[in-house]
Amino acid sequence: MPTNRSRTIHYQSPEADKKTLFERTGLEQLRALVDGTVSPPPISSHIGLEFISVSEGDVVMTAQPDESHYNPIGSIHGGFFATVLDSACGCAVHSTLPAGVGYTSLEIKVSFLRPITAETGTVTAHGWVTRRGKSASFAEADIRDSEGRVLATASSTCLIIQKGPAQ
């Protein structure tokens, strides 16, 4: 019989940050996450997501796959890949936005190239904007292992929202 395991997820409620979030540009918002002056979004604690670098139109982050992300065949579920890639694409777009402007993912296409398991260890996602438009932006991303092998790629379209959510 398999050994039961558990995982506890800790995060801070984003409600306090939401009130002032859209007073900053997207790049300022993401840099505040990097330097720790703003709490990371709750999804980060689910997948061990951390920012490594942020510049306009370009982000690098890491994620930590573990057994709690496994699918029935014993590898990391495709939802983990998709979540990391959606985060990388979305944050790359986010980094280009002026204050008061938000975005949401309209669509994402993910290509799974190699499996990820808990033994893969920390993976690195790189996201970059390929075209910034007034009402939509386009981005691409990839996930690599510690040896630089590409594990998955994505392309995404994000809707630009001229007034941030909850304003």
Rank of each mutant, 00 (worst) to 15 (best):
M1A: 11
P2R: 11
P2H: 09
S6N: 13
R7N: 10
T8K: 15
Y11F: 15
F22E: 00
R24P: 02
R24L: 15
R24K: 15
G26S: 11
R31E: 13
V34L: 15
V34R: 14
D35A: 12
D35H: 12
G36T: 13
G36H: 13
T37H: 04
P40L: 14
P41I: 14
P42K: 07
I43D: 10
I43A: 13
S44F: 00
S44L: 00
H46N: 15
H46I: 15
F51S: 06
F51R: 07
I52F: 10
I52R: 15
S53E: 13
V54A: 11
V54G: 01
D58R: 12
D58L: 14
D58H: 15
M61W: 00
Q64W: 12
P65I: 00
D66V: 01
E67G: 13
H69P: 09
H69C: 12
Y70C: 00
S75L: 14
I76E: 02
G79T: 13
F80S: 01
F81V: 08
A82V: 07
T83K: 03
T83D: 03
T83N: 08
T83I: 08
T83F: 06
V84D: 00
D86A: 03
D86F: 00
S87D: 06
S87V: 05
A92I: 04
T96S: 06
L97Q: 04
P98F: 07
P98D: 10
V101N: 11
G102W: 08
T104K: 13
S105V: 11
I108E: 10
L113R: 03
P115W: 10
I116Q: 04
E119M: 03
T120D: 05
G121W: 01
V123A: 03
G127K: 08
G127T: 06
S135A: 10
A136W: 08
S137E: 07
F138N: 08
E140Y: 06
E140K: 11
E140G: 09
D142I: 06
I143A: 03
D145S: 12
S146M: 11
E147Q: 12
A152R: 02
T153N: 02
A154F: 08
A154C: 08
S155I: 13
S156V: 04
T157Y: 04
C158T: 06
I160C: 06
I160V: 08
I161T: 05
I161F: 02
I161R: 09
Q162Y: 08
P165Y: 03
P165I: 07
P165R: 07
P165G: 05
Q167H: 10
